[in-house]
Structure formats: structure tokens, C-alpha cells
Amino acid sequence: MSFDAIDTWWWPFVFILIAGWAATDGWRFLGVYLGGKLSEESDLLVFVRCVATALVAAVIANLVVFPGGALADSPLLLRIVAAIIAFSAYLLTRKNILLGILAGEAVLLSGLFLL
């Protein structure tokens, strides 16, 4: 029952709906249901924010350390150095996101063309 298993026009869409839509919006709807029970000042919400932030941070780190696509062919050290420089530039420029991104991309691209 893979994506190519049934040779009709509609099967890929059913596959995307079950494996994609249900698997993501299910969590979102659960979040609305549970979020309705918490107030904004609740201490439990600090915990939930901590978990959500740590999860997103883990996604970020894995995108840098174990990337997919064209980025997978670049050296790991180059990606880590570029990410550290991006974050340092962001902090040094008083939290300017654009300058942070430009610094990181500049390091990555020069590394890719020079190495």
C-alpha cells in the first residue's frame, strides 16, 4: 500500500490525506481541545511553551546536522559554523534577523564554492 501501489488518479490524494493531513491536523485539533482548558497565566503553560520551544529547536538542529536534499552533500562542519555565525551576527546586531541570515548564508555559500 505505498504511494504508487494503486494506479488511479485518486490514490495519491487519499495517501496524502491519511498519511499527511490526518497525521498533522490531528495534533493541531488535539492542541485546540487541550488549549481550551488552560488559562494564559497558567504555570502549566510555561511547561507547554518549554516543550514546544525545545521541539522546534530540535527540528532546527536536525535540519543543520542531518539535512536532506542538496544540503546533504555539504560538509557538516561548514553547516555548523555557518549556523553559529548566523546566530552570533543576529545577537551582535541587536537581534536583526535579516543580517543574521545573510551572514550565515554568506559563510555557507563561500564554503560551498571554495571547498
Binding site: 520551544t53 549556523a83 543576529y90 534577523i97 541570515i101 550565515g104 548564508e105 560551498l112
Partner: peptide, 19 residues
């Protein structure tokens, strides 16, 4: 190189904005 740079945008953007 361009694809790699595009892929790299996502993590470094989140790295800064999440903070």
C-alpha cells in the same frame, strides 16, 4: 549550491526568530 542555500534558510531563520 543554490538549492543548498535555499534549504539552509529555514534552519537559520528559525534559529534566530525562535530566540
Amino acid at each position: 549550491q543554490v538549492s543548498a542555500a535555499l534549504f539552509f534558510l529555514t534552519p537559520i531563520y528559525f534559529l534566530t526568530s525562535l530566540w
